[in-house]
Design a protein around this nucleic acid. Structure first.
Lengths: 128, 128
DNA sequence: AGTCAAGTTCTACGGAACGTAGAAAAGTTG
DNA sequence: CAACTTTTCTACGTTCCGTAGAACTTGACT
């Protein structure tokens, strides 16, 4: 139950954008951001979505454990449970986890990483 | 279009099992293996699937680019396009690739790897 | 050559996930 | 209370996947 649809991902992107800032977004915030011409690398933007559409998606994301909703405040506030980086790293572990030969997979994985990333990894591994 | 269903994965497991041996399997081979009491860690085994079911799955896997089929020989022969390890590593790259901050993801990823795997990684990174 | 059995293709149905959203209920504000 | 906003409920269409029957193709055997 890890994969996201296109719209779900778009919404997560919005939430992730404000994750550091501990900015819990209201629905209105999200709609505003999504309509905003952000310079537009996004891809899903451009359409005017119905309010309920976004709410439905938020509910589904909540059920999946990716979004937390503050039900206390009146316009509810939504936020990503974990940062995009944490979530992605977790996903990578999920993918890796299902393999019988983890080390062989890692070997191939490392084989196609950029040099700068390899450097980062060396540094990180040193500290363990 | 990367995710597999339960049966699709089971079939891939069979194909991957013989990938090294360059053994291109016929449908019959696969059915035999799937029914075989392999010691049974599998999970999907036990049911008697219709022949056409497996064929359908093979076709879908072919469309997804995971399986190659030799149409020349009469009982067609099926084989995984890449090894399980390669495929998994590729998946990991796909997951990682979608992140804006790859290095941050890697940092978190490394943070939760077993010590023996960390050791493996150090070795691999040294050789680059 | 004619029949039989195995292999393959086509078509299809039911269930789940997802995009999408209307109708209605609940709550807020003036 | 009336008007507006937010949330909940329900639902429909599409695509993916498990599952498989019907029918066509082809090699084998008599």
């Amino acid at each position: 139950m890890a994969s996201l649809g296109e719209l779900e991902r778009a919404v997560m992107d919005l939430l992730w954008a404000g994750h550091e800032a501990a900015t819990a977004n209201t629905l209105r915030d999200l709609l505003a951001q999504s309509t905003e011409a952000t310079g537009g690398a996004a891809g899903h933007e451009g359409k005017e979505l119905a309010v309920t559409t976004v709410l439905t998606v938020l509910s589904r994301l909540e059920k999946k454990g990716l979004v937390e909703r503050e039900r206390g405040t009146r316009p509810h506030r939504y936020q990503a449970v974990s940062s995009r980086e944490d979530h992605t790293a977790e996903l990578m572990h999920e993918v890796l986890g299902s393999a019988p030969d983890r080390e062989a997979v890692l070997a191939r994985f490392i084989g196609s990483v950029t040099e700068s990333e390899a450097e980062t990894l060396r540094k990180l591994l040193g500290h363990i």
